Amino acid sequence: MSYIVKGKREQLEAAIIEAQRFVKVASKAVYTINQLENDYAKASCKEVAAAKRASMDLTRQLVGVRK
């Protein structure tokens, strides 16, 4: 296996792990939003912030896959 192929495989595996983490965090955020009644609390709860960070992390990981 060449170095380039091995590098791509590792990048894809890392992207899969990051995507799984994002889905887990986003699901938790959706559950929390459904439990809250205050619209302000829905937009600023810590679970939503964590989902935004996980989304940014996933985006960064996918850049390596696209190159």
Rank of each mutant, 00 (worst) to 15 (best):
Q20F: 09
A51V: 10
S2W: 07
G64W: 10
A51L: 04
V5E: 12
A43G: 00
K6P: 05
D39A: 09
A14E: 14
Q11E: 09
A14F: 06
R9L: 15
N34M: 03
S27H: 01
V25Q: 04
S27P: 02
S44Q: 07
N38V: 01
V25P: 01
L36N: 00
M56G: 06
E13C: 06
K8N: 12
E13T: 06
R53E: 14
V65I: 10
R66H: 08
K8V: 13
L58E: 04
V5D: 11
V48I: 14
E37G: 14
A19V: 03
L12A: 12
A19S: 08
A26C: 03
K52C: 10
Y31M: 08
F22L: 12
G7T: 13
V5S: 12
E47H: 03
T32V: 12
I33N: 03
S44E: 10
E10I: 10
R53F: 06
A51N: 02
L62Q: 09
Q61H: 10
R66M: 15
A50Q: 11
S27V: 00
L62S: 07
A49R: 13
T59M: 12
D39Q: 05
K52S: 10
A14L: 05
I33P: 01
K8F: 14
V65Q: 05
Y40V: 15
V48S: 00
Y31N: 06
L36M: 05
K24G: 06
K67I: 13
Q11S: 08
V65P: 02
Q11W: 11
A41C: 01
M1F: 09
Q61I: 12
K67T: 15
I16R: 07
V23W: 02
I4R: 08
K52N: 11
R66D: 13
K6D: 13
T59Q: 11
E10V: 10
V48D: 00
C45D: 00
R21M: 09
D39C: 03
S44W: 10
S55E: 13
A51D: 01
M1Q: 05
N38F: 01
V25E: 09
A43W: 04
K6M: 10
T32F: 08
L36R: 01
M1W: 11
C45L: 00
K52F: 11
E37P: 01
K8M: 13
V25N: 06
K67L: 15
A50N: 05
A15Q: 03
E37L: 06
E10C: 00
S2F: 02
L62N: 08
Y40T: 12
S55V: 04
V48A: 09
V30E: 09
F22T: 10
R21S: 13
V63E: 15
A26V: 03
I33D: 03
A43H: 02
T59S: 15
V5K: 11
Q61E: 15
V48K: 12
T59D: 14
N38M: 01
A43R: 11
A29Y: 02
V65E: 07
Y31H: 07
R21G: 05
I16E: 13
L36G: 01
L58Q: 04
K46S: 14
K42W: 04
G7H: 07
K8A: 11
